[in-house]
Computed example of a mutant assay.
Amino acid sequence: METDRNLYDGQRYKRDGTTYQCEIRPGKRSHRAVGCNIVENGRDINKVIGCRWYEQSPDSKIEKTCETDGPNKTKVTTVGCIYKYKGFDRIFLEPGKYTIWNLPKQKESSVGLACRKTADGAELVVFDVAQLERNTAGLTYDLPRGK
């Protein structure tokens, strides 16, 4: 393996969004994927395989994870969208799903929520229930569930 000639056992390096760790044994040199390399707040960050984290906005969170992607490679996957209401995590939706949520202590007041897939994960769309058809095309209904 060309890359590890100047690396030592246990050292890590990044390539194509994956963090690798060198393994040097008698008569054998190899590397293995140990994490995802992402940019977070302008900084280069390594997230280990199985790690979960949030990308946050004032009204939502997008939960992501690092997982293996075939032999010796990793990828970042979006786990779901979380709707925040009055500062608390309230509703969780998987990408490609939508739901209708009755707002607490507000009779006959509902909000539509959709977790839409995007090129780099997903986004939470909050909409008026009157716009249900327009905002849910191609999505699957899911019962509201807390996070």
Rank of each mutant, 00 (worst) to 15 (best):
residue 73 K to T: 11
residue 73 K to P: 03
residue 73 K to Y: 08
residue 73 K to R: 15
residue 73 K to M: 13
residue 74 T to I: 08
residue 74 T to R: 04
residue 74 T to Q: 04
residue 74 T to P: 06
residue 75 K to Y: 03
residue 75 K to M: 13
residue 75 K to A: 13
residue 76 V to S: 07
residue 76 V to H: 04
residue 76 V to P: 07
residue 76 V to C: 08
residue 76 V to N: 06
residue 77 T to S: 12
residue 77 T to I: 11
residue 77 T to R: 14
residue 77 T to H: 05
residue 79 V to I: 15
residue 79 V to T: 10
residue 80 G to N: 02
residue 80 G to L: 03
residue 81 C to P: 09
residue 81 C to Q: 08
residue 82 I to D: 04
residue 82 I to M: 03
residue 82 I to G: 01
residue 82 I to H: 01
residue 83 Y to E: 06
residue 83 Y to I: 03
residue 83 Y to H: 09
residue 84 K to Q: 05
residue 85 Y to M: 01
residue 86 K to A: 11
residue 86 K to F: 13
residue 86 K to W: 09
residue 86 K to Q: 12
residue 86 K to V: 05
residue 86 K to M: 14
residue 87 G to W: 07
residue 88 F to E: 08
residue 88 F to S: 02
residue 88 F to H: 00
residue 89 D to T: 00
residue 89 D to L: 00
residue 89 D to G: 00
residue 89 D to Y: 00
residue 89 D to I: 00
residue 89 D to R: 01
residue 89 D to H: 00
residue 90 R to F: 03
residue 90 R to I: 10
residue 90 R to Q: 10
residue 90 R to N: 07
residue 90 R to G: 04
residue 91 I to Y: 02
residue 91 I to Q: 01
residue 91 I to T: 02
residue 91 I to F: 01
residue 91 I to H: 03
residue 92 F to V: 07
residue 92 F to H: 11
residue 92 F to P: 03
residue 93 L to K: 06
residue 93 L to C: 10
residue 93 L to Y: 11
residue 93 L to V: 12
residue 93 L to M: 12
residue 93 L to I: 12
residue 94 E to F: 05
residue 94 E to I: 05
residue 94 E to D: 09
residue 94 E to T: 12
residue 94 E to L: 13
residue 95 P to R: 03
residue 95 P to H: 03
residue 96 G to F: 10
residue 96 G to H: 12
residue 97 K to E: 13
residue 97 K to R: 15
residue 97 K to L: 11
residue 97 K to A: 07
residue 97 K to D: 05
residue 97 K to S: 09
residue 98 Y to M: 10
residue 98 Y to K: 09
residue 98 Y to D: 10
residue 98 Y to I: 11
residue 99 T to F: 07
residue 99 T to I: 13
residue 101 W to N: 02
residue 101 W to I: 00
residue 102 N to F: 07
residue 102 N to K: 14
residue 102 N to C: 06
residue 102 N to R: 14
residue 102 N to D: 15
residue 103 L to E: 15
residue 103 L to I: 15
residue 103 L to R: 14
residue 103 L to M: 15
residue 103 L to D: 12
residue 104 P to Q: 10
residue 104 P to S: 08
residue 104 P to F: 07
residue 105 K to C: 07
residue 105 K to E: 15
residue 105 K to T: 14
residue 107 K to A: 12
residue 107 K to M: 06
residue 107 K to G: 04
residue 107 K to L: 06
residue 107 K to S: 08
residue 108 E to Y: 07
residue 108 E to A: 05
residue 108 E to G: 07
residue 109 S to N: 14
residue 109 S to A: 14
residue 109 S to L: 14
residue 110 S to M: 09
residue 110 S to Q: 14
residue 111 V to A: 01
residue 111 V to N: 01
residue 112 G to D: 10
residue 112 G to Q: 08
residue 113 L to G: 12
residue 113 L to Q: 10
residue 113 L to C: 13
residue 113 L to F: 13
residue 113 L to M: 11
